[in-house]
Design a protein around this nucleic acid. Sequence first.
DNA 1: ATTATCTATAGATCTATAGATAATGC
DNA 2: ATTATCTATAGATCTATAGATAATGC
Lengths: 211, 211
Amino acid sequence: MNSEDKIHQELDTEAKILLAAEKEFMLKGFAGARTTSIAEAAGVTHAMFHYYFRTKEKLFDRIITEKIELLKDALMKPVADMDLTLDEMIRNIIEGHLDFIAANPDLPRFIIGELSGNSERFALFLDKISTYAQIMISRMQEKIDSAVAEGLCCHIDARTLMMDIASLNIFPYLAAPIVNAALDNYMADADTFLEQRKKDNYATIMRKLKP
Amino acid sequence: MNSEDKIHQELDTEAKILLAAEKEFMLKGFAGARTTSIAEAAGVTHAMFHYYFRTKEKLFDRIITEKIELLKDALMKPVADMDLTLDEMIRNIIEGHLDFIAANPDLPRFIIGELSGNSERFALFLDKISTYAQIMISRMQEKIDSAVAEGLCCHIDARTLMMDIASLNIFPYLAAPIVNAALDNYMADADTFLEQRKKDNYATIMRKLKP
DNA sequence: ATTATCTATAGATCTATAGATAATGC
DNA sequence: ATTATCTATAGATCTATAGATAATGC
């Protein structure tokens, strides 16, 4: 018996379906996911899918909502403590954000692919996330402005700074399958890569911010 | 009559289907695309789809192949001329790459979403692209190494440098729909954003490379 | 003759539900 | 009594093809 079977034995039917659905939806998106495959992967009959979750769409929305909650926390956490210096805050953002991505490696691709401009669920996503994004940006800007006043930092739009940080943090994980296959497993050791990337990105951003 | 209808009138049936299919596949991916929708968008009967292209998969593969050719050119062009300095080559890469993305704004999301590790067509993609990616990287490394020897540049792995450049260039376009909706149309003016981004990313990378 | 197009429909796949049966908690 | 599960199948959707008809190029 492998460990996956073991986990399944310990969960009830509802939890098994939820787990299998999350995996299927994350990997294949709404259109690519099959409720029959989900039931099969969960090791239950297909009727159970509908018994517990009624429709494919309802379950998908539920999983999205959970993921949005995760994202919300990841956005707000590093700007919660306003007593930090800009330098410390940036380090927090980069390290916290990278830890979050490493713990949820499929999430970036899922969000980009399933919650983009042309998607059915784009509005739902925005509705739940944009307030928090704005709060995070305005706190960042505040912190930047006072650092500028003290001559510790060059002038920069917080949105640009966050775009740069997000780019350097997220993109490698989006491109990982391609990069690893094309460039000799460049990112093969996940932990080493993660820690190295924290240092690199912090250094890149700090050099960029120098007055 | 709007301009789209005009274009359609000037094209033959095959070209109309191809154009509509490209759009549908780019926006919705293979699983999300519908051959009926493609035929409808092309303004022809659904049977024509199969008459000209036999199957959904055949047409999809054809469109992928075309996109891979585009990508190949975009990879090789900036490292074609080995007489340039590292500084000039980096400027070429960043500007050429950003122009390419701006001209093909849906391509990054399509590649990340449809040609990722768990995709059916991942092998086909890699087979056609990895050789070129390796050539590009080794030329970059050569150029870096001689700049390091002259004391013009700090030591860096070409793969890391390319990862940083690709991240800073591509990610904003992947996130554009979300960012624009959440942050007050930050990237609204496409041309202004593109030119600003060229300057910003060049400056970011150059500061990073300082000895 | 060959190529292009249409209508109609087969065939495959997937989501969802009906209705019967078994298990569980009071 | 209520909750959970199963089998069987309806219903919807999509891809693909058959076969007839019209248009085109020699």
